[in-house]
């Protein structure tokens, strides 16, 4: 083949250009740390990265939802536990009142204490968390138990606030008051039972005290059930949280596997490419400099 000067020059330059171009691509990979800088670098990979991004963002949000839900349920749980303590004390007082040895004056004192217990339960039932009444169902801006102790929150069977803790899977983060403290229509109305007990003590009416005690027992059962349910939900939240802890780690790893450049191999390739560029440069210097002219006088 005839070789012209331009051909020689073009070939040498082309090689040098290609080597420099590759070197630059590798530099890009090293500096961004990414294997996929544009979708065309790996279209399927780019789509995966988008999906991982969404999955990671959702996992983070689900964890926040779980944390929010856990905080809300924790507040609910401690309120219910406190209620149980109060009911326990009320039962003790009722048993005490039933024994023959107490005078009327003592029963009046006990009635006064039961009155305090009544107020305490009402206060618990009107607990606020983050400025929201936790037992009001959806009506979180109004105290669910009014002065007379009647329930004014969302009526049964509504009022459960659900949040998503996984795609399509929800959990209720609250207990509406009617399910915990009861109301005139639902379950055992604990406030009414305490009020009844107080009146019975004042009236020194043993039958009525016993009736109130039965109601209090039912109220205790009701609170037990609520605690069991909250416990189960907190358990589920805990499991979900662990799941997302692991998932988030996995997703970040998948994303990195898909998107990140393998720095070790890039750097060794970089070194190779650099020496190739040097070779093509030294060849260029040798080939382009010489011509027949050098050998003519």
């Amino acid at each position: 083949m005839r070789v012209s000067n331009k051909m020689l020059y073009d070939t040498v330059m082309g090689n040098m250009q290609r080597n420099s171009e590759k070197l630059m691509e590798l530099h890009d990979g090293v500096s961004s740390g990414l294997r996929i800088n544009k979708p065309s670098d790996d279209p399927a990979g780019a789509v995966k990265v988008i999906n991982y991004d969404t999955a990671i963002s959702k996992a983070e949000q689900y964890q926040r939802n779980i944390d929010n839900g856990t905080a809300f349920l924790d507040a609910t749980e401690s309120a219910v536990t406190a209620t149980q303590d109060v009911l326990q004390r009320a039962k003790e007082l009722a048993l005490f009142a039933l024994s023959e040895t107490n005078s009327d004056a003592e029963k009046d004192t006990m009635a006064l204490e039961v009155g305090q217990l009544y107020e305490q339960v009402k206060q618990i039932a009107n607990t606020k968390f983050n400025d929201r009444y936790i037992f009001a169902g959806f009506r979180t801006d109004v105290a669910p138990y009014d002065d007379t102790g009647s329930y004014t929150g969302t009526a049964s069977t509504n009022g459960y606030i659900d949040v998503e803790i996984d795609s399509g899977s929800t959990i209720s983060i609250n207990m509406p008051g009617y399910a915990v403290f009861g109301s005139s229509n639902d379950g055992t109305d604990i406030l009414a039972a305490l009020d009844d007990l107080k009146t019975a003590m004042e009236d020194n009416d043993s039958d009525a005290i016993e009736a109130a005690m039965t109601d209090l027992d039912a109220g205790m059962d009701q609170a037990d059930n609520v605690l069991a349910e909250i416990g189960a939900r907190l358990n589920r939240l805990e499991l979900a949280k662990n799941h997302f802890d692991k998932l988030q780690f996995d997703l970040a790893k998948y994303k990195s596997d898909t998107e990140d450049a393998d720095i070790t191999s890039i750097i060794s390739e970089l070194a190779l490419q650099q020496s190739m560029l040097e070779v093509s440069r030294s060849i260029a210097a040798r080939v382009l400099q010489q011509s027949f002219l050098d050998f003519l006088r």
Binding site: V49, N65, N68
Partner: peptide
């Protein structure tokens, strides 16, 4: 269309849905 530094359409859409999630935990 493809922005790997976090301001792409997709990330903004994710963030929008996340903000709806936040509201679901505190609707008012």
């Amino acid at each position: 269309f493809y922005d790997s530094n976090g301001t792409g359409i997709n990330q903004l859409l994710d963030q929008f849905f996340n903000s709806l999630q936040e509201l679901s935990a505190n609707p008012a």
